[in-house]
Computed example of a mutant assay.
Amino acid sequence: MVIFTSICANYLHKARTLAKSVKDNIKDSTFIVCLLETELKDNYNYEFFDEIILSKDCWEGNFERFIFKHTIVEASTSVKGQFFRFLYKKFPNENKFVYLDPDTYVYSDFYELKEILCDNPIVVCPHLLQPGNIDMELSSAAHGVFNLGFLAVNNSDNAKSFIDWWSERLYLFCYDEKEKGIFTDQKWIGLAPCFFDVYILKHRGYDFATWSLLDCGMEEINGEYFIKGDSLRFIHFSGYGKTIENCMKKWLPDGEHPFKKLYSEYSEIHDKNNYDAISKTKWSYDYFVSGEKILEKTRYEYRKNNELMFKIENPFEKSNSFIIENSILNNKQKLKEVLTKFIKKIWR
Rank of each mutant, 00 (worst) to 15 (best):
I278A: 15
L252S: 01
N43V: 04
K282C: 14
H270Q: 08
N306T: 12
C216G: 04
V98P: 03
F234S: 03
F237R: 11
G255S: 08
E168Q: 11
F150A: 07
I189K: 07
C8M: 04
K27T: 05
F48G: 01
G190Y: 03
Q333D: 11
S108T: 10
L36K: 07
I26D: 02
G229N: 10
D57M: 12
S264A: 11
G217L: 10
E112L: 13
L201C: 04
L138G: 03
Y11E: 06
F48D: 05
E296W: 14
S139G: 01
Y287F: 15
K20V: 14
D119Q: 12
E179S: 14
F110Y: 14
P258D: 05
K228E: 15
A141F: 14
E219V: 15
G255R: 09
E307W: 04
R303S: 08
A141Q: 13
H257W: 00
P315W: 00
C58P: 00
F162H: 07
G132M: 14
L54T: 02
D286K: 07
V198G: 05
R204F: 04
G132E: 14
L170F: 09
G132N: 10
N45W: 01
N10E: 13
I328A: 06
H70N: 13
A75H: 10
N331W: 07
E177W: 05
T5N: 02
D42L: 02
W59N: 10
G190E: 09
F31L: 05
L191H: 07
S327E: 00
I182L: 15
Y225A: 12
L12W: 00
H236C: 02
C34G: 04
S29Q: 01
F49E: 00
N62R: 05
C125I: 13
F288W: 05
P126G: 00
F63C: 03
K23F: 14
K250G: 03
I52K: 08
M309H: 01
E39C: 05
L308Q: 00
N147E: 09
K27F: 12
S29D: 01
E296R: 15
E177M: 08
I72Y: 11
N25Q: 10
E219I: 15
G291S: 11
S167I: 03
K96I: 06
N95I: 04
I134N: 01
K280G: 08
F49D: 00
R65F: 00
V123F: 00
D271I: 04
G291F: 15
K261Q: 13
M309G: 03
K293A: 12
A209K: 02
T210R: 09
I278G: 11
I221G: 13
K20P: 03
D103L: 08
G291P: 14
W283M: 01
W188I: 15
K14Q: 13
S21M: 14
F84W: 02
R303V: 07
K114G: 06
C34I: 05
E301F: 04
K96Q: 11
D157V: 14
H127F: 08
N147L: 07
H203F: 03
A9N: 02
